[in-house]
Amino acid sequence: GLARDLGVHGIRVNCIIPGAVRTPRQMRLWHSPEEEAKILASQCLHTRVDPHDVAALALFLASDSASKCSGRDYFVDAGWYGA
């Protein structure tokens, strides 16, 4: 709705949906080696999502290269399928 309402003013609205991002806090509090293995097994790409992966998408969406992207949800979750 926001993308539709604000698009007439040239404002783009998108949503970034991060997956299991590997942050220092996550690693300290919740991610044991067993949990890491579960996360990797539940993703199409067997690699962890780091903060810079989410930041890269945010920078792209803020750039002129994404000038025609609006009203969408973008997942940064390495293809999570929750096995």
Rank of each mutant, 00 (worst) to 15 (best):
L61C: 06
A78K: 10
I17A: 14
Y81I: 06
R28A: 15
V13Q: 01
P18L: 13
S32D: 03
F60Q: 15
L6K: 02
I11D: 07
I11A: 03
C15E: 05
K68H: 13
S32C: 05
E35N: 09
A56M: 07
K38Q: 07
P24Q: 09
H9L: 08
I39G: 04
I16E: 09
D53L: 11
E34N: 13
M27C: 14
L29R: 09
V49S: 01
V54M: 08
F75Q: 10
R28D: 13
Q26V: 06
I16N: 04
K68I: 12
E35T: 15
L40M: 04
A62E: 07
D53R: 00
L2V: 03
G19M: 14
A3F: 05
A55H: 13
L40E: 04
L6P: 00
I16Y: 00
M27W: 12
P24C: 10
D53T: 02
R4N: 07
V76F: 14
L61E: 07
A56N: 12
I39A: 01
A37Q: 02
A37C: 01
R48C: 09
R28K: 11
V76G: 10
Q43L: 15
W30M: 03
L6I: 05
A78L: 09
I16M: 08
A78F: 13
D64K: 11
V49P: 01
E34H: 02
V8Y: 05
R48I: 10
A66K: 02
S67Y: 06
F75G: 08
T23L: 06
R48P: 08
V76D: 12
W80T: 03
C15H: 06
F60G: 13
H46K: 13
I11F: 05
L6M: 08
V8K: 07
K68L: 11
L59E: 10
D5N: 10
L61Y: 06
T47R: 12
L29V: 02
F75D: 12
D50Y: 15
V8C: 08
I17G: 08
R72H: 11
C44Q: 12
G71D: 03
R4C: 00
C15N: 04
G19P: 05
D64L: 09
G79F: 05
R28N: 10
A83I: 13
D5T: 11
S70C: 02
K38G: 05
K38M: 11
K68A: 07
Q26F: 12
D53H: 08
